[in-house]
């Protein structure tokens, strides 16, 4: 069988899945809106977490956070299930499809057969929706793909039980009930949380402070490491920033799109103004990636590390201004 399901491509898998599932339940909400309501924009430089032996620079909150927050803000009832037994997990999925419920799943990317090979790492927080089963093959709506994809029983079982960091353990979820959605309220709540995370949290590693912290560290890379290792550190940052499913520039453009849409919906021209500024910041992030790419390719000298560090400081200043303005705007709104 096959459930009538509209597959929309998205820049980020988590938003895309929520947006697509919501549309199935009759609510039209774009990817950017889901992203903003779930406070998806973020920055942290986590020196204590290592990925491939390099510190993690994250442009997104912990996987699943956007989903959780958006679901709460939009008053959705979501049923989440994990299974210890692989067969039971697959049977539960079959039962769901039989009932006509499109079911979201957390999967690992490494064994995802339809995914382009150079992008297949052990990343276990990818989200897909299963919308049907035909001839023993599951029909998958993956928001990062252009069309529906097929997965065999064994392949799906394997990706649902991917191992390593954040092993999904057969996790599946579906919307059981849609409550009273107050989108305007959710938008303001989302912006408030973003402001909190980006400029108000204490500590040096999160938000705009985290950017400055990283900028200071980048400056030291050529002194601390040899040319190759320093280039790898930079490469890691760009990979996290431009990785598949970020919409480019570490989600900054996606957030700008959200601000624009929110400004129209709430009739607040100031928000659209901030959207333009955020676009400019996104362009700066792209410039950051260009310069980093050059350094990686030519194993550049100390000066280029100084320049790129200065660029990051500028980005932090610009972003801080935006969040301060947003803070002012949302505080001025009377409920």
């Amino acid at each position: 069988m096959r459930i009538e399901f509209n597959h929309k491509m998205s820049a980020h898998c988590e938003n895309g899945v929520i947006s697509n599932l919501l549309e199935f339940h009759g609510i039209k909400l774009s990817e950017a809106m889901v992203f903003g309501i779930g406070s998806g924009i973020y920055f942290s430089h986590l020196t204590m977490f290592k990925l491939n032996g390099l510190p993690v620079t994250s442009f997104r909150p912990w996987p699943g956070a956007i989903f959780r927050r958006a679901a709460k803000a939009l008053d959705l009832s979501i049923k989440r299930r994990k299974f210890r037994n692989k067969e039971k997990a697959m049977n539960a999925l079959d039962a769901n499809l039989e009932k006509g419920i499109p079911t979201g799943m957390a999967v690992g990317v490494f064994h995802l057969t339809y995914f382009p090979a150079p992008y297949r790492f052990h990343f276990n927080a990818h989200n897909i929706v299963c919308v049907g089963k035909e001839n023993g093959h599951y029909i998958i709506s993956d928001p990062t793909m252009e069309d529906f994809e097929m997965l065999s029983y064994d392949d799906l079982k394997r990706v649902r039980y991917a191992q390593g960091l954040q092993a999904p353990k057969g996790k599946m979820y579906y919307i059981t009930n849609v409550g009273n959605i107050d989108i305007n309220k959710a938008i303001i709540k989302g912006i408030k949380r973003t402001v909190l995370e980006m400029i108000k949290l204490p500590g040096p590693i999160i938000g705009t402070r985290g950017m400055r912290f990283l900028a200071r560290r980048i400056k030291k890379y050529p002194l601390k490491y040899d040319a190759r290792k320093a280039a790898r550190h930079l490469g890691q940052i760009v990979r996290m920033q431009e990785e598949i499913g970020t919409g480019g520039a570490g989600f900054r453009f996606l957030y700008a799109a959200f601000l624009q849409e929110a400004g129209e919906r709430l009739n607040l021209p100031e928000l659209s103004e901030q959207s333009k500024k955020m676009t400019a910041v996104g362009d700066m992030w792209r410039e950051f990636a260009v310069q980093a790419g050059r350094i990686v390719k030519n194993r550049n000298d100390k000066e280029s590390f100084d320049t790129i560090s200065q660029l990051l400081l500028n980005i932090a200043d610009e972003e801080e201004k935006i969040y301060k303005d947003l803070d002012r705007i949302v505080k001025g709104i009377r409920k």
Binding site: M9, E146, G248, F253, A256, Q260, G293
Partner: peptide
């Protein structure tokens, strides 16, 4: 597949554009 990128059109409105890749990346 192709990647979705958000960009502004002539009127400054955000639209989604598909991209096949970018050099630094």
């Amino acid at each position: 597949t192709r990647e979705l990128q958000y960009a502004v059109d002539e009127d400054g409105k955000y639209v989604a554009v598909k991209s096949v890749g970018w050099e630094p990346k």
